[in-house]
Design a protein around this nucleic acid. Structure first.
Length: 600
RNA sequence: GGUCCGGUAGCUCAGCUGGAUAGAGCAGCAGCCUUCUAAGCUGCGGGUCGUGGGUUCGAAUCCCGCCCGGAUCACCA
């Protein structure tokens, strides 16, 4: 609103005075930096140059003109080193506040489209439990979904479970051989962890077998070829593909254990999906499309029967799509699922939240789809995120350095419990209330820790130092919310009767103090932040903003009294501003998939 | 080797579609709770923004070279 106004007005001035038609993006307007006076800064250098004026002189002309022609909006201006800082009239600020203060969905747009945005994330394997890498994936996917929704998109969250293949057979085989019929129920273990143990067990026995074979003089390659365990696993995969009833029922049983475990983890993270697909149902998709591509001469069939896409003119290599025996590969399946999703939903965008080790894969996928003549391949977007590394480097299951998702969440819960107990502000909480609080604090700390960093960067996680609850953290922000809600409760207890926040705003515009305006200026940025986060698909943008807001609020809180303020107009104004701040904190955290407590 | 991505304070990270004196947190030091929640607030110290060039009124941000780190280039998924 103020940004648009200043851009338009500048456009008008330049056209009128200099006969030059500019576009809005040629007029950079930004929030004035704190150390200068003013609300918004028009950066005039570019314009000054195109009309051959000195920046200072042009800025002064523009400033005077704005002040004269828009005296209702512009109260003052100053020029520092050619930057034109504009002050907006206090009346306008108050008006703006009145306009938004009772809007529960401030900053959010209503869903307005039939064409959804599809977002695929999580997509776990059913042979082992989730780890820290999956947590980053899940949190990103969840947060992005919320951000897209807030931007008015209908969102369909998709989970494509990798439930078949040789790795699944390994854990099945191990269970068959060494479990003595144990189950998650009989052992009291969470299903995904239970199955994961057998996957590890397979590898242990397999390594042992390889060791013995190599000691008997075989090369590592020959040893792998000779391994009976691996041969048995492959045999099991063949049986699975042929629909062997025994193997299939074992597979179903073990997978159901894993889903049981996953469900609990997802629930704890607050994650849901509109659609869950299983590769066992989708892995044959795409074969027809590829065959059709061969017929249309888009793809190449080689002498041995294998089918390829030639992408060499696009700076990529040839890519296999069907093996010589006619079976399909990962890429084929992804072509198929993309097509069926497109047909089903007619989406405006298809987002894949997948690790950056698959950059090449998605690059190829997009180009193969284009090669096949699907114009909508442009709608594919790979949200590529970096690995989470430990101080000693990558997580390695062989070295037992994998950070397990459930264990990590347990630790976060425990830290939350300890900290909360020490502070002793929750003595009257019930058991359930406490558990809920510990959970949202623990998840808040973890979620914020991960989401505040740029997704594509490799990030470091140090389990020793664990995750802080002070400073630039989730709990700090949650705390700020709880703090404000506490003031609100005190106001109600003190007998303030308030039916809307708007009625609290009776302050004379001239009496709008500086710190309050600082807060208001930050609040004003929120809708733009939501929009920016949406177009950049960036939870970090929201995280940075909400931290700044919480920090700004805490300074304000420390410096001024709200309920004890003698000037009642000012007291009411501060309360309204505080409650609105709490709401924006809550909304922002919702965009990050983090709950916020009323008390802590 | 080809392609892609990253390199900002002791550590973890913002800032990157060019803008003012590069910011936070942690760690360290010094303060602030009889007053609305101290998971907070205030202050101090801490920087060749990997490096060399270029474009520009202006470069951490854009372009080129180089150095370092990572990912990837399967008839695996």
């Amino acid at each position: 609103m103020f940004y648009e106004f200043l851009r338009e007005a500048t456009l008008q001035f330049v056209l009128k005075e200099y006969g030059l038609q500019l576009t809005t993006d040629q007029v950079p307007v930004q929030k004035t930096r704190k150390e200068f006076s003013g609300d918004f800064t028009i950066v005039v250098f570019g314009i000054a140059k195109s009309i051959l004026k000195q920046p200072e002189i042009f800025a002064k002309e523009l400033g005077l003109w704005l002040q004269y022609h828009f005296s209702d909006n512009v109260s003052d201006f100053n020029i520092i080193k050619g930057f034109l800082n504009i002050s907006i009239k206090a009346e306008r600020w108050i008006e703006y506040l009145l306009d938004v203060v009772d809007n529960e969905r401030y900053g959010f747009r209503e869903i307005d489209s039939d064409h959804p945005v599809l977002i695929e994330f999580s997509s776990p394997n059913t042979n082992k439990p989730l780890h820290l890498g999956h947590i980053r994936n899940n949190l990103l996917g969840h947060s992005l979904s919320e951000i897209l929704k807030a931007n008015g998109h209908r969102v369909v969250r998709l989970n494509l479970v990798n439930d078949r293949g040789i790795h699944i057979c390994k854990s099945m085989l191990a269970w068959q051989r060494w479990s003595n019929g144990e189950t998650p129920e009989s052992t009291g273990k969470k299903g995904d962890h239970f199955v994961g143990e057998f996957y590890v067990l397979f590898n242990k026995h397999y390594q042992e077998e390889i060791r013995i074979l190599t000691e008997s003089g075989l090369t590592p390659e020959d040893a792998e070829a000779k391994s009976t365990l691996m041969a048995d696993a492959r045999q099991m995969l063949r049986l699975w593909e042929n629909g062997d009833p025994k193997v299939r029922s074992l597979w179903q049983m073990m997978n159901s254990w894993v889903y049981d475990g996953f469900d609990r983890t997802y629930k704890r993270m607050g994650i849901k999906f509109e659609q869950t697909d299983y590769e066992s149902n989708t892995y044959l998709l795409g074969k027809d499309i590829v065959a059709d591509g061969v017929n249309r001469g888009k793809l190449i069939k080689k002498e041995d029967g294998s089918v390829w896409a030639d992408l060499r003119t696009l700076n990529l290599d040839e890519k296999l799509l069907l093996r010589s025996d006619g079976t399909s590969v990962y890429m084929t399946q992804d072509i198929g699922t993309a097509c069926s999703r497109y047909e089903k939903y007619q989406p405006k965008q298809m987002v894949y939240v997948v690790g950056n080790e698959q950059n090449y894969h998605f690059d190829v996928l997009k180009k193969v789809l284009a090669l096949l003549g699907f114009g909508w391949s442009e709608k594919l977007f790979h949200l590529s995120y970096g690995m989470v590394e430990l101080p000693q480097g990558k997580m390695k299951s062989r070295e037992g350095t994998v950070v397990d998702a459930d264990e990590l969440m347990d630790e976060m819960f425990e830290t939350a419990r300890k900290t909360t107990t020490e502070l002793g502000k929750t003595d009257d909480f019930t058991h359930d209330e406490l558990n809920h609080l510990y959970n949202i604090l623990g998840m808040g700390a973890l979620g914020y820790f991960i989401l505040k960093v740029d997704p594509r960067k490799t990030m470091l996680f140090d389990p020793q130092e664990s995750i802080d609850f002070n400073g630039n953290t989730g709990p700090f922000i949650q705390y700020t919310h709880a703090r404000i809600r506490s003031v609100w409760r005190k106001a109600i207890e003190a007998g303030w009767s308030i039916s809307s926040l708007g009625e609290l705003i009776t302050i004379a515009p001239g009496a709008l103090p500086n710190k309050e305006k600082e807060l208001l200026r930050l609040i004003y940025e929120f809708p733009g932040i939501v929009k920016e986060a949406g177009s950049n698909l960036s939870p970090a943008t929201v995280a940075n903003f909400v931290y700044e807001l919480a920090k700004e609020y805490n300074q304000f809180y420390h410096e001024f009294s709200i309920l004890h303020e003698k000037n009642t107009e000012l007291a009411k104004f501060r309360l309204a501003l505080s409650v609105l701040t709490a709401r924006i904190i809550k909304s922002s955290m919702q965009l990050l998939g983090i709950e916020v407590p009323e008390r802590m």
